[in-house]
């Protein structure tokens, strides 16, 4: 699994967990079907994108350190 896809997967799980955590702490209400689904999907997609970018950048950076010859070209 690439660093980007790992980041996206981590971001989706992070977003879902964060939405439910905020709901548990009283900052979100997931009672209604439409609003609750919207919150969860927005959190999952947004953090999936953000974590995917982070994973991509970190992956490239570490690849340059681990295999400098292959990444110098």
């Amino acid at each position: 699994m690439s660093a980007t896809s790992s980041g996206v997967l981590s971001g989706i799980i992070f977003g879902l967990a964060l939405a439910f955590l905020l709901e548990q702490l009283g900052y979100l209400s997931l009672s209604a079907l439409a609003a609750g689904t919207l919150y969860v999907v927005v959190f999952a997609v947004a953090f999936g994108v953000v974590f995917g970018i982070i994973g991509n950048l970190l992956g490239k950076r570490r690849a340059r350190k681990l295999w400098p010859a292959a990444n110098s070209a």
Binding site: I13, L18, F20, G59, L66, W67
Partner: peptide, 24 residues
């Protein structure tokens, strides 16, 4: 549930920060 979710959130942050690159 909040404790589990909090641990999951922290673990995912750790996971993305320690992501392994694929070999070229």
């Amino acid at each position: 549930l909040p404790i589990i979710l909090l641990l999951l959130v922290l673990f995912e942050v750790y996971a993305v920060l320690t992501v392994k690159p694929t070999p070229p």
